[in-house]
């Protein structure tokens, strides 16, 4: 199995650790190999704890310099060399961009945005949400090699009971004249704040907050819980909150340990982005709001009244512990 891994400031991205965890369950004794472009030994130190047996570190280029078509070529060439039957990507902005190109290069099937993998490599069936999560499709592949992208935050990253020493080898790639796309600039807008897609706890606000200045109620609860702030499409469209906080079919997909929806009615587009959260809490004054149908716990009440009280009680509890 070949896994496309991405480095982060302190090791590997959580979505990459999720890939290694997911691979262990379907490897069936075959070798789990990572491919990472430009990672240090320190960054890869964590991989062995998750069971990554082998890692190929690509040197001589960066994903930005190489462009998506060359990154796809590097991965496809490596997969061919290894004779791998399964290639895994995270379904993040990189995976969504590169995986389809990789699949075509490998003459392989692609099954994107998977939330479950069944079977073993070479004969994996995958489950993916369709129609904004209103149905699930189970797919099999008809090609010898198959590319899967895994929805982030669904396959929980867990360290292996049998940690290994990752065998690291580097491979130098020279990108010739065949550069199709070049990334000129790359800006990360949310430095310093917790990304909603990476957070364990997400507190989201919707139109029920009535005005952008009331979002401090949502931020206060998020702070008390140590979570990130999310937003519904309605309030992002209204310009109250930045697009990077949008949770939903066309925003981020999240599946944190706990998702708290404040003043969000629960339109199907919103549910598509959060319905795989482990625990869902809803606070809404409309008892018939669709969000209550998918909630584990709910408070029928006004967010302006409930949120300050809830924040105070949670702060008291967490400071007490």
């Amino acid at each position: 199995m070949l896994l496309y891994l991405e480095p982060s400031s302190n090791g590997l991205k959580r979505s990459s650790l999720e890939l290694i965890t997911a691979a262990r369950a379907v490897a069936g004794g075959s070798t789990i190999t990572g491919l990472v472009i430009g990672a240090t030994e320190e960054q890869l130190a964590v991989a062995g704890e998750y069971g990554l047996q082998e890692c190929i570190v690509i040197t001589g280029t960066t994903p930005q310099q190489a462009g998506n078509s060359n990154v796809a070529k590097i991965i496809a060439d490596t997969a061919t060399e290894l004779g791998t039957k399964t290639v895994l990507f995270a379904a993040n902005s990189t995976g969504k961009d590169v995986a389809p190109r990789t699949a075509v290069r490998l003459q392989a099937a692609i099954i994107p945005d998977c939330v479950e993998l069944h079977g073993t490599t070479g004969a994996i069936e995958a489950v993916r949400p369709v129609f904004a999560g209103k149905a699930f499709q189970r797919l099999s592949s008809t090609t010898p090699t198959t590319v899967f992208t895994l929805r982030p935050n669904v396959f929980t990253a867990k360290k292996s009971d049998a940690p290994v020493q990752t065998a690291v080898r580097s491979k130098t790639v020279t990108i010739g004249a065949d550069v199709r796309t070049t990334v000129v600039t790359n800006t990360t807008l949310n430095q310093g704040s917790l990304d909603v897609a990476e957070a364990d706890i997400v507190v989201s606000g919707g139109r029920g907050l009535k005005a952008p200045e009331h979002f401090n109620l949502v931020e206060d609860l998020a702070n008390a819980l140590g979570g990130a702030v999310g937003a519904s499409r309605a309030v992002v469209d209204a310009g109250w909150r930045p697009h990077r906080e949008q949770v939903g079919q066309t925003g981020k997909t999240v599946s944190p340990t706990m998702y708290v929806a404040c003043g969000i009615s629960g339109a199907v587009q919103h549910l598509a982005g959060m319905s795989s959260s482990k625990i869902i809490v809803a606070i809404n004054k409309d008892k018939d709001a669709p969000i209550f149908k998918v909630a584990d716990y709910g408070i029928v009440g006004d967010v302006f009244d409930v949120l300050p009280k809830l924040t105070a009680k949670i702060s008291a509890l967490t400071s007490h512990n």
Binding site: N92, R180, T182, T185, N186, D195
Partner: peptide, 10 residues
């Protein structure tokens, strides 16, 4: 892109 923007030429 996740958490930001990229400017690309092609």
């Amino acid at each position: 892109i996740d958490g930001g923007k990229e400017s690309v030429t092609t």
